[in-house]
Amino acid sequence: MTRRIPGRYVALGDSFTEGVGDTSRHLPNGVRGWADRVAEALARDTPGWEYANLAIRSKRLRHIIAEQIEPALAMEPTLITLYAGGNDVMDVGTSITTILDQYEFLVSRLAESGATILLFTGYDVEVSPLLAPLRRKNHAYNCGIKTIAAKYGAIVVDYAALHAYANPRMWCSDRLHMSKRGHKYLAAHVLEVLQVSHGIVLKEKSHPPKPTWKQRGHGHYLWVAEWVVPLIGRKIRRTTLGDALTPRWPELLRVPPKKGLKKVARRQTTTAAG
């Protein structure tokens, strides 16, 4: 993307794009994320950019199709980012054929807008040997995304090939979502793909020391107790973490070149209080 006139950026998807893992008490839903950082960099580079983020954690492809396509197209975007399907891949019993059929339908509709479209492959997160069978499904998903992107002229951000994410520091404690550092790194990479200048600087950090077998066992126990068991409980109850949430930025807003979206959030809070 070489345009140097302001446009309209709409971000779609699930927790990956909502910003889960990049905590911020000043912003809607308590998170920031790579997409907010991209929007702010676009506005600093070329003032006047507008931004909406419709992503909500836990959403499957069917939800994104039903809830996000039409509002996104109505905004007449010039740039769309979409990460979707990761939750479907992790759902037991969903076929890769069904996932890719829904994904292609979603991309085909977004392509009607004429916007620049960025798609993402899915990273092979090695959270546990128990989930190893899902890796084959994820590989097929990634191959399908690349084929669909080529068919509709979309740009692929090959998240699966970003070796920096082999560092555990790039992930938060649930082992599935990026940490603040991970979100910052991805924002920088997306901006470089778009050929947009940015000031995101990441200090080099080595991998943490390898844990002892005792530490590894304790860490795995905590992960199962704090994340896996509640996840299974939600699946049994057929609820998700996103059920009570609304999109963070549901309508296009002008992103201030200075102080960014925190300035917008403060303004909205003041207006609501008044």
Rank of each mutant, 00 (worst) to 15 (best):
Val156Ala: 06
Ala154Thr: 00
Asp158Phe: 00
Ile155Trp: 03
Ala154Gln: 01
Tyr152Lys: 14
Gly122Glu: 08
Leu130Trp: 14
His177Glu: 08
Ala164Trp: 02
Val157Gly: 01
Gly114Trp: 07
His163Asp: 13
Ala149Tyr: 04
Leu176Trp: 04
Tyr123Ile: 04
Leu134Met: 13
Arg136Leu: 09
Ala140Met: 10
Ala161Pro: 00
Ser113Tyr: 00
Lys146Gln: 13
Leu130Val: 14
Tyr152Asp: 13
Pro168Gly: 03
Ser113Asp: 02
Lys137Thr: 11
Ala164Val: 08
Asp158Met: 02
Leu131Pro: 03
Asn138Lys: 14
Gly144Tyr: 05
Pro133Tyr: 05
Thr147Lys: 14
Asn138Gly: 15
Leu176Lys: 07
Thr121Cys: 10
Ala166Cys: 08
Gly122Thr: 06
Leu130Glu: 09
Ala160Trp: 01
Ala161Val: 00
Ala154Asp: 00
Ala166His: 09
Ala115Tyr: 01
Arg136Gly: 15
Phe120Leu: 11
Arg135Cys: 05
Ile145Asp: 05
Tyr141His: 15
Val125Lys: 15
Pro133Gly: 07
Cys143Met: 14
His139Thr: 14
Lys137Glu: 08
Pro133Thr: 04
Asp124Val: 07
Leu131His: 11
Tyr152Arg: 13
Arg175Phe: 01
Pro168Gln: 03
Lys146Asn: 08
Lys146Leu: 03
Ala132Tyr: 05
Thr121Ser: 14
Tyr165Met: 05
Ala164Gln: 12
Ser173Asn: 09
Leu130Gly: 03
Gly114Val: 01
Ala154Arg: 03
Lys151Leu: 02
Thr147Gln: 14
Arg169Met: 05
Lys151Pro: 06
His163Ile: 02
Leu130Lys: 14
Gly144Gln: 12
Ile117Cys: 10
Thr121Gln: 06
Tyr141Met: 15
Leu176Ala: 10
Thr116Glu: 15
Asp158Glu: 09
Val156Leu: 07
Ala132Trp: 11
Val157Ile: 11
Gly114Arg: 08
His139Asn: 12
Val156Lys: 05
Leu176Arg: 06
Leu119His: 09
Ala161Asp: 04
Tyr159Arg: 02
Cys143Asp: 13
Val156Met: 07
Val156Asp: 02
Trp171Ala: 04
Arg136Ser: 15
Leu118Ile: 01
Glu126Leu: 10
Cys143Asn: 14
Leu134Cys: 08
Ala166Ser: 14
Pro168Thr: 04
Arg135Ser: 11
Pro129Leu: 08
Pro168Tyr: 01
Arg169Leu: 15
Ala160Arg: 03
Val157His: 02
Val127Phe: 13
Ser113Met: 02
His177Trp: 06
Ala149Leu: 07
His139Trp: 12
Ala149Met: 07
His177Cys: 05
Ile145Gly: 11
Ala140Val: 09
His177Leu: 11
Lys146His: 02
Tyr159Ser: 04
Arg136Thr: 08
Arg169Glu: 07
Tyr152His: 15
Ile155Gly: 03
Thr121Leu: 11
Ala140Arg: 15
Pro168Glu: 01
Ser173Trp: 06
Ala132Ile: 10
Ala164Cys: 02
Asn138Glu: 12
Ala149Trp: 02
Leu134Pro: 01
Asn138His: 05
Asn138Val: 06
Ile155Pro: 01
Thr147Asp: 12
Arg175Gln: 08
Arg175Thr: 02
Asn138Met: 15
Ile155Leu: 13
Asp124Gln: 12
Gly114Leu: 05
Ala164Lys: 01
Cys172Ile: 07
